[in-house]
Write a protein that binds this DNA or RNA. Structure first.
Length: 474
RNA sequence: GGCCCGGUGGUCUAGUGGUCAGGACGUCUGCCUUUCACGCAGAAGAUCACGGGUUCGAACCCCGUCCGGGUCACCA
């Protein structure tokens, strides 16, 4: 049984790169009928962000890639607790075990000493590695602050087969005697992750490339503890156009921001999946449930990927196009509320969606980008007015408004017939009225087919707006 | 700087010895249309980072170089 985990640290909000990592983990679990767990790695008390866990949970729920086990589940599961700060005795136990086995040692170097070592010879000089054990214990028992470091063997080759990068080899001489238990009694990432991954029976560790170089330490820890390591898959980073790790300076990096801009979770997820994964068949539009059926780490490739906003928008639009008008309409009320507009009646909204769908790529496009369906235009686009509003337009529009007032039916077909009839009677081409009417009724030069638009808008609204436009424009 | 990973049009990618190097986004052109968009048709855009090999034949295999990134914390 495959068991994978997404293990964010609550030092900030969920990042798009984090969501991609979570997605790949989730997909692998689904593909093989395994379990996807969520573990919170909060061992750094200095960087904790109070509502980070809530944010991560909330965004995962939004994306619908919710864990099967762990934080956020009710109950959490049998391998808990899944929050590292609640597992301190466990880490302590293993640290002690390593101490007793002589695979780790107490180190009393102060922050000042370490800073000096870094300056002078570029790293910890292992000064306590061979320090007398009894003496060290005595100092520790006396309450002296210290950390526990792992005793990394000298001159060994540490290698493993990464599922996305292939064979990777490190020289143990490059690995420092990593701190595994801090002086505050909390474990570092290295110990905590290894212990938890083992105890939680994780089979595949899928994480970002930034962890690649610490994998040899983890391998050593597994060996020291007598455990079999899981398989590893190191994902490339999501980078900006300059090739650097995507950061706040590059714009929107937290999932929240995409959510607030009105991207569909399906669109964001699809786009993120494509940043490093492809099925090899030229298909690009995928639902999560379709990806679940075919996802394979072998098809994830190792080079970094640039986050391309245009492509994201396009993928999102594809998902929008694939949705039923009613389903889109169901998502819209909150966007009206956000825009400070009353929520239109549902049937009306569904009709608007039908007309606007091809013209929208984000949810708020149906609101702000179609405002004339909900409010009379406050102004008329100047460029369009200059181009389309002729001296005789006012009179023509006024006449058309009168006709609409009296028109027996109100279908697009009847509206069109009426307009063309009037134009013919006045010796004008239809365009002479079509464009001014569009401008008058919507305030802008583009939009859905005019007659469908008038039909949806309704008689009263059209007549009112046209009369107003004929007055205002000249 | 040491170590590690990466390198196919601007971007995401397909491709593991023989194809005109395929697809998508974006860009441009045309068609459609009452407009915008969608859609359709087409175009431009790649010395497959570079240099050596191996081979009858390399984007694909080997070596070197360059460039980019990651990592070297009592952060994850």
């Amino acid at each position: 049984m495959i068991r994978v985990r997404f293990a964010p640290s609550p030092t900030g909000y969920l990042h798009v790169g984090g969501l991609r990592t979570a997605l790949y983990n989730y997909l692998l679990a689904r593909r093989h009928g395994g379990k996807f767990l969520l573990r919170v790695e909060d061992t750094d008390r200095t960087r904790l962000v109070p509502d980070a866990v809530d944010n991560i949970l909330d965004n995962l729920r939004w994306a619908d890639i919710y864990p099967d086990e762990g934080v956020g589940c009710q109950p959490e599961g049998e391998h808990g607790p899944y929050t590292q700060s609640q597992r301190l005795p466990i880490y302590r136990k293993y640290a002690d075990q390593l101490l007793e086995a002589g695979l780790a040692y107490r180190c009393f170097a102060t922050a000042e000493e370490l800073a000096e070592m870094r300056q002078n010879h570029g790293g910890y000089d292992r000064r306590y590695r061979d320090y007398d054990v009894a003496e060290a214990k005595k100092r520790a028992d006396a309450g002296e602050a210290h950390v526990i470091r792992m005793k990394v063997p000298v001159g060994e080759s540490l290698e493993f087969d990464d599922l996305v990068r292939g064979h990777v080899r490190f020289d143990s001489n490059q690995v420092d005697d990593q701190v595994i238990l801090k002086s505050d009694g909390f474990p570092t990432y290295h110990l905590a992750a290894v212990v938890d991954d083992h105890e939680m029976e994780i089979t595949h560790v899928i994480r970002g490339e930034e962890w690649l170089t610490s994998t040899p330490k983890h391998l050593l820890l597994y060996r020291f503890l007598g455990w079999t390591p899981p398989r590893f898959a190191h994902l490339s980073l999501v980078v900006n156009i300059q090739g650097k790790k995507l950061s706040k300076r590059d714009g929107d990096v937290s999932v929240n921001e995409y959510r607030e801009q009105g991207y569909l979770p399906a669109g964001l997820l699809n786009f993120l999946a494509l940043l490093g994964w492809s099925n090899g068949d030229n298909r690009e539009v995928w639902s999560v449930s379709d990806m679940e059926k075919v996802f394979a780490l072998e098809r994830v490739h190792p080079s970094p990927a640039v986050f391309d906003f245009d492509k994201l928008r396009h993928i999102n639009q594809q998902h929008l196009f694939a949705m039923e008008d009613t389903a889109i309409a169901d998502l819209l009320p909150e966007w009206f509320t956000k825009a400070g507009l009353p929520v239109p009646e549902r049937d009306y909204l569904v009709r608007v969606v039908g007309l606007m769908k091809q013209r929208c790529s984000l949810l708020p496009d149906f609101v702000g980008g179609a405002s004339y369906f909900y409010q009379d235009p406050e102004s008329f686009d100047e460029t369009t007015a200059r181009k389309r509003w002729k001296p005789e337009s006012g009179e023509l529009v006024r006449e058309f408004a009168d006709r609409l007032q009296a028109l027996p039916g109100w279908t697009a077909v009847e509206l069109e017939a009426s307009l063309r009839e009037l134009c013919e009677a006045r010796g004008q081409g239809a365009a002479a009225l079509i464009h001014p009417v569009r401008l008058g009724v919507s305030g802008v030069g583009g939009g859905p087919g005019l007659f469908e638009m008038l039909e949806v808008l309704g008689r009263e609204v059209c007549v009112r707006r046209l009369r107003k436009a004929a007055e205002v424009l000249k």
